[in-house]
């Protein structure tokens, strides 16, 4: 009889301890949830991105004659190793190019977008004097052209023609201020591949 009572007590004790344990788990879980920061992601909203400016761009046409080819920086004399190397800024070649560039400084920056006859839009950026990379060359950037286009691509001729048409605009602008493009050194961009492509396409 006493043994049976002892068993009953044991069963009751085990059940109570399980109930307490489960209760503790539930309480702790709810405590943990309430202490966690809310990590609900905000829903994406429609952003007021700047809308494209719709302006009538000046239109250009293909150059009618061969383009004047500016001087190449690759032909510029350099200092020998014992004088420290780099571009020889005292040379006649560099002095002459520097003088030509200086004639254009008062008219910079030149920032104009053009609608080319090829269908592409070209943005021409010639920065002001303080943003020119060096005094002996004029940085002229023509954006909107893919200079990386592979030579066997169907877009190659389109890019080449577009570049030449935009370059002609720049040359005509230079002429209007009495500057001969052939006496200048033009830096057609920052990357070596752009400079190489531009010189190749102007030939």
């Amino acid at each position: 009889m006493e043994e049976q009572l002892e068993r009953k007590k044991m069963i009751i004790f085990i059940s109570i301890s399980f109930v307490i344990l489960f209760g503790l788990v539930i309480i702790l879980k709810s405590l943990q949830k309430s202490s966690q920061p809310q990590t609900q992601l905000p829903t994406p909203t429609i952003i007021n991105y700047p809308s494209p400016t719709r302006v009538e761009l000046p239109r250009t046409s293909p150059p009618k004659k061969d383009l004047p080819v500016p001087q190449s920086i690759n032909n510029a004399p350099t200092y020998p190793p014992d004088k420290g190397q780099g571009i020889d800024i005292e040379s006649e070649f560099i002095q002459s190019a520097t003088n030509e560039v200086q004639k254009l400084y008062p008219y910079l920056p030149y920032l104009v977008d053009y609608q080319l006859s090829t269908g592409l839009t070209a943005s021409i950026v010639i920065p002001a004097q303080d943003l020119q990379e060096n005094p002996w060359s004029l940085t002229v950037q023509i954006f909107g052209i893919d200079y990386q286009v592979p030579a066997d691509s169907q877009d190659y001729q389109l890019m080449k023609d577009s570049f030449r048409e935009a370059a002609n605009v720049v040359f005509e602008w230079m002429n209007s201020y009495g500057v001969d493009p052939q006496k200048l050194i033009v830096r057609w961009g920052d990357k070596a591949l752009i400079k190489e492509r531009a010189e190749e396409w102007l030939q």
């Binding site: 200092y79 420290g84 780099g86 060096n134």
Partner: peptide, 21 residues
């Protein structure tokens, strides 16, 4: 490579490329 022919011994200052051996 992108700075080829952009430097000279006769020109120096902050942010200006320098000639290297």
């Amino acid at each position: 490579p992108d700075l080829a022919n952009e430097c000279s011994t006769g020109r120096s200052g902050p942010g200006i490329p320098i000639p290297l051996p």
